[in-house]
Design a protein around this nucleic acid. Structure first.
Lengths: 138, 138
DNA sequence: GTTTTATGTAACTTATGATGTTTCGTAAGG
DNA sequence: CCTTACGAAACATCATAAGTTACATAAAAC
């Protein structure tokens, strides 16, 4: 399945914004990400709505951080971007009265819920300043 | 994103095959899953290749279990169906020399690897006879 | 041996959501 | 006013599970 690479891309952008310490345009970010400025605006605007970056129009405008990196976690960005599930596995919901389907879905969902809780917890533990400093795995 | 519901569907089918104790045709399974017999054959054939079910042509033919439920785990079926990642999150791989991208991908991948290991371990712990008996979460 | 019932499989269409693209509107600085 | 920037609508593209059509093949029933 097609992957959602927005989290990876946005983290990349945020750390660069921190290091550059100046407004960066969507065109510049698009070059950096090998994509289109409209894609940048579309995705960055989700972060703007949550107060992690701000945008300024006109000459000298562009994107800047609205919060220091140590106040932003991977979880913050993940939540800003996606409302949908973390997993490519889906459950069926076609037979509301079949106890087997219920048991199957319960078993799968039980595992996925546990895994999702783990991911969200770990994401919440990583602030973006750790990425700027050169992240080392646990 | 579109979900892959094949695991849920196939587990559902396998438990039913166990309970019916007789060959079931793709048409019957398709009715059960609210889908098409060709979709059933396509997915079931992946399980056949791994030796979990067998198919017989002609009158009285259809699908039967090739192993007892207690010798099949969720992990077995999961592995038979998908080679792709469990997660909708993808990493970017566009800037091989950017240390920030490396740190970002490392941080994300670190978490996803841990979560994937958890999912696979849990899937490996659940045999299908537990689903037939009415699964209760941990 | 012909018919019926099955699976096996190729080829094509559909649905979904991130991604990519074009185009126009709008605000801010020079 | 002209250029530079974001904002946003509208549409195309891509990948993949799912759905569909069509036909070949094998096995049992008659």
């Amino acid at each position: 399945m097609r992957k959602d690479s927005r989290l990876s891309r946005m983290l990349h952008v945020l750390v660069h914004l921190h290091q550059l310490q100046q407004a960066v345009t969507s065109d510049q970010l698009a070059l950096m990400l090998h994509t289109n400025p409209v894609v940048v605006r579309r995705t960055m605007s989700l972060l703007r709505e949550q107060g992690y970056v701000s945008a300024v129009k006109g000459h000298g405008g562009g994107w800047t951080l609205a919060k220091p990196l140590h106040q932003i976690t991977l979880l913050d960005i993940h939540r800003s971007l996606s409302e949908s599930s973390l997993f490519t596995i889906g459950l069926t919901d076609e037979h509301n009265n079949c106890p087997i389907e219920k048991a199957v879905n319960l078993a799968i969902d039980d595992v996925l819920q546990e895994a999702q809780a783990l991911v969200l917890q770990r994401f919440g533990e990583v602030t973006l300043d750790k990425l700027a400093a050169g992240y080392t795995p646990r």
